Amino acid sequence: MADHEPRLKVLHIITRFILGGAQENTLLTLIGLRGHPRYEPLLATGPAIGPEGSLLERARSENIRTVLIPELVREISPWNDWKALRYVRRLIREIHPAIVHTHSSKAGIIGREAAHRENVPAVVHTIHGPPFHPREKPWRNRLYAFLERRAAGQSHAVISVADAMTAQFLAQRIGSPSLYTTIRSGMEVEPYLAQYDRDALRSSLAIPPDAFVVAKIARIAPLKGHEDLLNAAAEARSACPSLHLLLVGDGELRISIEALAAKLGLSSAVTFTGLVPPSRIPELLAAADCLVHASYREGLPRAVVQAMLSALPVVVYNVDGAPEVVSDARTGFLVAPGDVHGLAASVQKLASNPSLAADMGRSGRERVRNDFDWKEMVRRIAALYDRLL
């Protein structure tokens, strides 16, 4: 592009800009595109309501133009959804983006509909996780699949963060294979490779220096598996009395999870950090011995990649994109969803065999350190934009 030509506007739309994997992915994409010679990124999002924090201030501090759409909410709300659609259409007419790039299901449906009606030259959607899943109500799954089929017809490209996302969407007859491209969810790799003072970190968290620390990084919300982890920890402590849980995050189920920990006699063996900025995740992982990710629904589990970058072995429910990252019995253990005994046995195996845990951690770091760099993610997304225009 010649120096005198204006950059092409790329409008990213996401339902909520909370502390979460999809949101961190989107933020790093915006930051990467901010310095791109051809593209100028903008962000539109609904309100970040609730205990799950917000990344809006980080986006604004990075000089990303942001627009708040009050009616863009996660819940099904025909009146709000209609108003959000009108808002996005007005925004598109105002800024004239060359590309609309949507994230998450609600923003994906509304954003692509608006872009289609306003004849935006290129419409892209990223699947961070499917809206339909086995634990959802059947009528909702049917509705979500129908809406995603319609939106796929309004899309010029769909990015999947894992091959499993593409397979699940194609199984629901959503789009054709040529529509999909897999681009791994990137992250800032360097902080996870750094050295930290583990003893000082544990002391600051009031965790005993000789504890076997099991970390979990997730919103404390339905389907994230905190209940399973607590029950597995109660079982594993009979063989590993030094086991200590480090739960990073907050959410709507915090009070009930604290109550379950007390009921299981684990209160003194669980540390709740509450919300923390993403920049603290590397040092918190440095205080741990392994990570357990017992989520029932995931695109590509970002926390698992972060733990592997930190050279930690991982124990992960075998759902969605997990087996694309974790090599069972080599970089950690894949466990069937809901298998609490399997979680407990895997944690016990790591706690009782430090050399195995260390080998798995080293193998995991080598597996992911090159494929999940955020700059490579941005490069591939920009290359996709180039092909579409």
Rank of each mutant, 00 (worst) to 15 (best):
K9T: 04
R86E: 14
K263D: 12
A167T: 15
E283L: 05
R369T: 14
I69R: 03
N80T: 12
L260R: 14
F132K: 03
Q306P: 04
L201D: 08
L384E: 14
R302I: 04
D250K: 05
E252R: 13
C240V: 15
S178Q: 12
L28N: 04
R302F: 08
A221L: 06
R117I: 12
R379T: 11
A259W: 10
R90Y: 02
V161C: 06
F169H: 15
Q195V: 11
S355Y: 08
L91F: 15
V270Y: 08
L28K: 05
L55F: 06
S327D: 15
L334F: 01
N318E: 09
N141A: 10
A286E: 01
L30A: 08
R280V: 12
L201A: 12
E376I: 15
P37L: 13
S178A: 13
D210F: 06
H12M: 11
E57P: 02
G153L: 09
V73D: 00
R254A: 04
L205P: 00
H293T: 02
V189L: 05
D163Y: 07
E188T: 15
H103N: 09
T166L: 05
M360A: 05
K216W: 00
P130K: 06
L30S: 08
E94N: 08
E136N: 14
A288F: 01
A259P: 00
P130Q: 13
R117M: 14
R34I: 11
L284G: 00
T273P: 05
A145S: 14
L72P: 00
R112M: 15
G364E: 00
I76E: 04
G321K: 01
T26Q: 03
A115N: 12
